[in-house]
């Protein structure tokens, strides 16, 4: 069990590293566009697509690891007043029984969408560059899958009381 947990954590961490690289690409492509347009009067046809794709990719790929780090903001001043065990069961249930299936469903649709983009050679709809869309769809699907797994693992950990220390520390 812990082996699987660690594997999921590692997967999330790797995607988060990729997201860091994507953040750099975002900044670089946008500043390049500014320079290309203003200094050289030769704007690119790709900077706009690359920028929005980077933004989308970086947050989806980063979401799982952010969950591992408990960085998704929550309001817990009321919850902290609840008995620890009650809170564990409640949060564990919400994560395992509600959130994991929901994000599982989203991941499933995301994979389907990426596959369709691949088989139909779908291209960007309004961009003059008209890049193939499946790599972007694929990255979104990958990020959602990692997020789903991390949600599931988070829920199980809470049930098992593995994160009990966290709970008591904050309370």
């Amino acid at each position: 069990m812990t082996g699987i947990f660690t594997a999921v954590d590692t997967f999330s961490r790797i995607l988060s590293r990729v997201a860091e690289a994507v953040a750099l690409i975002l900044v670089a492509s946008m500043i390049y566009e500014v320079a290309a347009r203003y200094v050289f009067s030769a704007p690119t046809i790709w900077a706009f697509d690359i920028s929005y794709m980077c933004t989308g990719t970086l947050f989806v790929l980063g979401a799982a690891y952010a969950l591992r780090e408990d960085a998704h903001v929550r309001i817990d001043f009321l919850a902290q007043k609840l008995p620890v065990r009650f809170r564990q069961v409640m949060e564990g249930t919400v994560f395992v029984a509600l959130l994991a299936p929901i994000y599982g469903g989203l991941s499933w649709f995301a994979v389907k969408r990426a596959w369709r983009a691949f088989t139909t050679a779908e291209v960007e709809m309004v961009s003059p560059w008209a890049p193939l869309m499946w790599p972007f769809y694929g990255l979104l699907a990958l990020g959602l899958i990692a997020f789903t797994l991390q949600i599931f693992v988070h829920g199980l950990r809470i049930f098992a009381g593995n994160q009990k220390a966290d709970f008591e520390l904050k309370a």
Partner: peptide
Amino acid sequence: LAGIPIAL
């Protein structure tokens, strides 16, 4: 208020 992250 149950302490579930806002986005979730």
